[in-house]
Amino acid sequence: MDLFAFVKPKNELESSAEKQQNVPFVPEEMWIKCPKCNTMLLTTDMEENLHVCTHCDHHFRISAKQRLRLLADKHSFTEQDAQLTSSNLLDFPGYDEKLKKAKKKSNESVICGECRIGGIPTEICVMDADFMMGSMGTVTGEKITRAFERATENRLPVVVCTVSGGARMQEGILSLMQMAKTSGAVKRHSDAGLLYITVLTDPTTGGVTASFAMEGDIILAEPNALVAFAGPRVIEQTMRQKLPKDFQTSEFVMQKGFIDAVVTRGKLKQTISKLLKMHGYKEAE
């Protein structure tokens, strides 16, 4: 069973992903078509609107760096463990080339470090779809584990923004073990009485869903994000039956009881900063 397959999102989301890859948000690109409502959008307007369609509210995928800019206070982020970088531990055929390609687009599958959100010191991890679809390798697991261990030590809350196609199959069993390792670190942070907020973004699937994505005290999600353990294609193949409408969207998963709130991108930062305050975390001097 291809449970940890690099799940392809649904058709409309798929095309949005392709659009994003083929049409990066560079200044010389003036117009972009929304894959959901087909409206032509001005890229400058899009940027101003946090890469959300001004017409239909479709949330475009953004990079880890863009998301970090969205959530962290200006100049407040200090990156940690940037030196950790994926390597071909099992000599898996073709993985070296894939890594080389991925590293041209992004440094790693996750960026971790300390920042301030609304003035409050917070440990933050942001996964990056631009690096092998945010798949979980040993470095992903190690960086997230270290972030939780640092936060436990420094008594900080943790915010993790997830985006992941699932496990990094080129790292075999070592990839699977990261689910246990990160979960252990989350549990220790939790047992220390500290707050953990997850932000699920499109897509969050497989081994990431079945570990730290679903372990937050408070689980937020962006609208219409694919949130799944087994992706829709895997299920369709196994079941040979049509999936319910809106199956595995964040709204659907919230209705089933597994997400606390669906929050639009524009309200994400203020929601997180309110939650941090309500848990007694104070602004830094």
């Binding site: 689910m179 246990a180 979960s183 252990g184 989350v186 549990k187 939790s190 869903t209 079945a210 570990s211 730290f212 994505a213 679903m214 372990e215 799944a228 353990f229 087994a230 597994f258």
Partner: peptide, 10 residues
């Protein structure tokens, strides 16, 4: 399914 597995791991 994902939540159930995640909880066991923790």
């Amino acid at each position: 399914q994902g939540q159930a597995i995640a909880e066991n791991l923790m």
